[in-house]
């Protein structure tokens, strides 16, 4: 679910970079306001590795092959730091594996980052880190699944709204429809992964789920 180079016009790509820069800036500023800004770095670094590696794991869902997005997962576990971490993960995926373009890095970061931030907002509003283990796991599972669905919806919106005239729109819509359907199992898998991660952290001590 990464937009490659060459399919998106320059203006849209630039707008993506601008919006992404705002989110990264706000995220870093929010983290810097905390009494101990460095405290989140080890977790951010580890989750960057998980996010980077997660999307390299292909899951065959005939007729397509899909991969984990982990948007809701990093949102719940990282809060505002999710967007910088996603940018770093996407950057390495793009330069090492050509997975997603460099011109579309901003757009791809938005497609993953906005669901992450939304998952974080809901998690915070619902007080997920203060809940009992079953409730926290159920909430995290729901947010993990919702993160995939929202990311797919954003991806489809960018693809279909930016279709050039020379592309057969009906055919592309059909292909996007198949692509969306293929992500329904991914939503289930990510829900389970996110719930399991939160369950583990909860057992290790609920302080690990708190970012202050």
């Amino acid at each position: 679910m990464h937009l490659p180079d060459g399919l998106v016009d320059g203006g849209t790509a630039l707008a993506g970079y601008a919006a992404c820069a705002v989110l990264v800036g706000v995220g870093l500023w929010q983290v810097n306001r905390r009494p101990d800004p460095g405290a989140l770095v080890p977790r951010a670094a580890l989750l960057a590795a998980v996010f980077f590696a997660g999307s390299l794991v292909s899951i065959p869902v005939p007729p397509a092959t899909v991969h984990l997005t982990l948007a809701g997962f990093v949102g719940v576990l990282l809060g505002w730091l999710a967007v910088p971490v996603i940018v770093i993960g996407l950057f390495f995926q793009a330069i090492l594996f050509g997975h997603g373009g460099l011109t579309t890095l901003g757009l791809n970061a938005l497609i993953m980052g906005l669901p992450a931030l939304l998952a974080f907002a809901i998690w915070r509003l619902a007080g997920g880190d203060r809940r009992g283990r079953p409730t926290a796991m159920a909430l995290a599972g729901g947010l993990g699944a919702a993160g995939v669905l929202l990311a797919v919806a954003l991806f489809a919106a960018v693809v279909l709204l930016g279709l050039p005239d020379d592309v057969d729109a009906a055919m592309e819509r059909r292909a996007v429809g198949i692509f969306i359907a293929a992500h329904l199992p991914v939503a289930v898998i990510e829900g389970v992964v996110t719930a399991a991660a939160v369950g583990l952290l909860h057992r290790a001590g609920s302080g690990l789920l708190r970012y202050g």
Binding site: G38, V41, A45, A48, A49, A53, L96
Partner: peptide, 16 residues
């Protein structure tokens, strides 16, 4: 390549 990046992340985490 993936192992290098992952090790970079783990190293960063350990350093901090």
């Amino acid at each position: 390549m993936a192992a290098c990046v992952i090790w970079g992340c783990i190293g960063t985490a350990l350093y901090f």
